[in-house]
Design a protein around this nucleic acid. Structure first.
Lengths: 330, 330
DNA sequence: CTGTTAGCGCATTCAT
DNA sequence: ATGAATGCGCTAACAG
């Protein structure tokens, strides 16, 4: 039916072992052998059976990727970075989505591990005990994405959200803002938003300030939620000079609220986001925000996986940084 | 090291075959056997080795997913639908991104097939000859997503983009619009945008009209491109009463252009999009557009895969439909 | 540099 | 309803 390695070996007049070596260029191979094997592969249209390879070697060219959401535009970008990093390596991404449910993450880790992947890439430091145990004891590399504010199981790739929050506070304080409002979303599912909030408040406190008021949406972030929550905040307080949002989705909603209701942005009220979404660049007013490079996070994660392990218990941390975007809304 | 089926069988005092049957509930099994096997699995923390299973059965609980882009927000939503459909089935998605490059699609098809997946889900009808051949002759089911305007290899799930374009023309004509402009993006990478355009123009012609003018961006769609292209179009013509955009990204850019330059939308100029993005619902003005249900497309695709094949050469087509959204911009 | 020999862990006959 | 035997296609020692 479909050609196997044995067929290739026979046609090339070498042993299976040699044919196998050629295909994975492992070990020393004569030009002779290499050429005839490659010719046979070509001729037969040979496709290696990955399952057989994985079984024999107890390892597979697979990388498990566990993402909390596809709705928050941040994660498609991370996935794009991961796929970009994987492209041309022969490795494939096995993708699962948790919808921010740690028990879903746990069962995904279990099923993904059943493929003996080279690595599991997941998000954040917040896992169930069982997840943590399973991830820690396999031979697969483990990457925890987005955050570097805690000690990783193996590798962390992301930025310090606490420092990002502090940087925002410092930046806005230096620009002269004093009356801060905050519009956020559910902290239970998004711990990193909470860290940014903590950084923001901490730095404000160091400058003798605190938030004047805040509204928290009880659910995932979205443009609609941002719009609604800003409206609610402004109904309560009219004396704010700046509102910081938990992310750009929310901030864009805030901007839309201002545009729709005629609030003059920056003159009457300033807005600041987080994430640096492309759409923020071309909104009627360029959103003032803090850019985290999600594509780079994904790409760096993959590169880190292939980096040789220095020692079995050394943690690796990659800081992909952030950057304040001036914009036109603050 | 890690427990195998043999360990489970021994502990449960049954044969490997029985243990295997229990785990996949295949064939008749006594309560006795089932319970002791399940207990053994629990006790040993047994994890099946998928590679071994795939090798032995020449089939794997994997679905290859090939998407052209992660930047266009439509595809993350499709992927979300696919994952939702897969959740709880024990199947996993093996994801690749082509960046609209058919040769990348071809090599992805090859690598994915090496895992003997249950199905390959890809996008559109436009493939290389080799891709089409490989897909056609495997035992994996094949789904072509988004479009139903041509004959599929096996299964098509999506909507008629031609009819969508016609529906838009009819809707806008009935609302009294006569001077149509069009703002689009690259047709080579996005054939479906071209189909919608054809539908639009065809229906206009049937009503004795044609496009007054159009601008085409030479690249992928984006909010920025939409903004820029509308600006360019309006520099050339000031006598349009409606502009139809190739999709909502582009249309949102157009809306932003109007908001930024003070063009009164719907009074001076109307705008119409395509795709029904969530963000269009909460923009300062709710975008008038045509909604295609991307999540449903992904979910339906997965359901179609598991539908038993009626006959080996019957093509299956699922029309997920579309819906005109009135909005506030047209 | 190459071939020989053994499995890898499971699903699947075919018995019973 | 169960077990024994076989092999899926490949990689990994090891010996030469």
């Amino acid at each position: 039916m479909t050609a196997t390695l044995l067929d290739v070996a026979r046609l090339a007049q070498v042993s299976e072992a040699t044919a196998s070596r050629v295909l994975r260029d492992k070990g020393p191979i004569s030009r002779q052998a290499r050429e005839s094997v490659l010719a046979a592969v070509e001729k037969l249209g040979y496709l290696p059976n990955r399952a057989a390879g994985a079984l024999a070697s107890a390892a597979s060219p697979l990388v498990g990727v566990i993402l909390p959401s596809m709705t928050n535009i941040v994660f498609p970008e991370v996935l794009r970075g991961i796929n970009a990093g994987l492209a041309g390596t022969g490795y494939q991404a096995l993708v699962g989505i948790t919808d921010y449910d740690l028990s879903v993450e746990q069962s995904l880790v279990t099923s993904l591990l059943a493929w003996s992947p080279a690595a599991i890439i997941t998000t954040g430091f917040h896992h169930t005990e069982s997840t943590r145990r399973r991830l820690g004891q396999g031979k697969a590399r483990v990457v925890e994405l987005m955050d570097i504010d805690a000690e990783p199981i193996d590798i962390a790739v992301g930025l310090s959200h606490r420092k990002a929050g502090e940087a925002v506070a410092r930046h806005l304080f230096e620009k002269g803002y004093r009356r801060f409002g905050y519009v956020g979303h559910d902290w239970n599912s998004d711990r990193r938003a909470r860290l940014r909030y903590d950084g923001l408040c901490g730095e404000l406190a160091r400058n003798g300030l605190e938030l004047v008021d805040q509204t928290l949406f009880d659910g995932l972030s979205s443009v609609g939620a941002g719009r609604e929550m800003l409206a609610r905040l402004l109904r309560r307080r009219s004396d704010l000079d700046i509102v910081v949002f938990s992310n750009d989705d929310m901030a864009l909603g805030g901007l839309f609220h201002c545009l729709a209701t005629g609030i003059r942005v920056k003159q009457e009220l300033s807005l600041f986001g987080f994430n640096g979404l492309e759409i923020g660049d071309v909104a009627p007013l360029r959103l003032s925000t803090l850019r985290s490079n999600r594509f780079l996070i994904g790409k760096t994660a993959v590169e880190a996986i292939f980096e040789p392990r220095s020692s079995l218990h050394t943690k690796v941390v990659h800081d992909t940084g952030f950057e304040i975007i001036e914009g036109e809304t603050a």
